[in-house]
């Protein structure tokens, strides 16, 4: 388990115990985090699990591939430098203490 600090779409803070090996999206979805819709079920095809990775987190979550980049361009909320689709991030111990803010997904 890896602890993720989450600010949900309504601004509330949570600590999510995310199982290693799962996607960050599925950990957030299973924790019932407000704003994670994940309409496509993790296919990188809907951009409704969009999050902002805070602090130094971007160095730890890896790079977005070209498809994710396209999807981020078409996300409902503003794309920022720290935008990622949480379905494309695998939870590992290296993410311990990661801080993420859920974007306004719609």
């Amino acid at each position: 388990m890896t602890r993720i600090h989450v600010t949900d779409a309504s601004g509330a803070s949570h600590v999510v115990e995310a199982p290693n090996g799962e996607s960050l999206m599925s950990a957030l979805l299973n924790a019932g985090i407000d704003g994670i819709l994940a309409d496509c079920g993790g296919g990188c095809a809907c951009a409704t699990c969009h999050c902002y990775i805070e602090g130094d987190g971007m160095d730890r979550v890896g790079e977005a591939n070209s498809l994710e980049n396209l999807m981020l361009d078409s996300a409902a909320a503003e794309r920022r430098d720290n935008s990622r689709l949480s379905c494309q991030i695998d939870v590992t111990e290296a993410l311990e203490g990661l801080k993420v803010t859920v974007a306004e997904n719609a």
Binding site: L37, D39, C40, G41, G42, G43, C44, A45, C46, L67
Partner: peptide, 17 residues
Amino acid sequence: VRRHMAFGFGIHRCMGN
């Protein structure tokens, strides 16, 4: 209701939904 399957899931999910 939002979890209906009509748009499919995964990488081929309907892009025009």
